[in-house]
Amino acid sequence: MEMTLDHITHRYGDMTVLDDVSLRIPAGEILCVIGPSGCGKSTLLRLLGGLETPDEGRVLQLGEPPSDCLNPLTYVFQDFALLPWRSVAGNVSLVLEDHGLGRAARRGIVADVLARTGLGDFHDALPRQLSGGMKQRVAIARALAVNPAVLLLDEPLSALDAQTRELLMEDLVSLWTRVPFTGVYVTHNLAEAVRLGHRIAVLSRRPGRLRDLVEIDLPLAERRPGHPALEAVQAQLWSLIREEAQAADKELADA
């Protein structure tokens, strides 16, 4: 399933956060969205998943999601959003319980996605017992369980330390390599963007406009930290947003 943002403008009160943004999200590719803080990246993602409606413009989905898809537009949140009173399996099962699946079918799906994310041994663990990386793996497993047509990732690795982030990036790459999914990956981390993005959309400072769309041809599986081609793209991206990031940094929150 493909998605299109068609001349999106969005305001919070008097403040325009997104100004005339048009973007195409082709099926089977990961689109990274980067930009300085407060540029409306997360708003863009909320609009895509229908958690907010744009003031102007339209969010379109082209084509039908596959029939076995339980929740076409599925989020992975920065803060994991796991229910602390449910076990790992319970958290995954939560999103399957409203779809009239039998107990056995639910168990099968839960076991499958936990195995795919390397969580098979943590079936009955509670979120408080898990490290940040494991919690985010649970959230990814939960997202995979509903067989999404488009995965919407909202800075999924920002709350993790550098080593864990590296491990989870490898996990995401191998998940995509096995079964390519459509993804929108919002981040402020340029290294993540060049590792995971087939295309990278660069947003400007508030009001967020689309400044550039950078394409990287290198297959995901061949991308390594410190790869010269990626370093070059990362430098190019940094030169695009450096000044804006500086200006955004000096901005007063309510000015």
Partner: peptide, 23 residues
């Protein structure tokens, strides 16, 4: 954030109240 998560997964209103808000 948990309620928003429930909504984003298309949970029913009764499920959100019973499985997220009440506990």
């Amino acid at each position: 954030g948990l309620i928003r998560m429930g909504q984003s997964f298309g949970l029913r209103w009764t499920s959100i109240v019973g499985k997220i808000v009440l506990p």
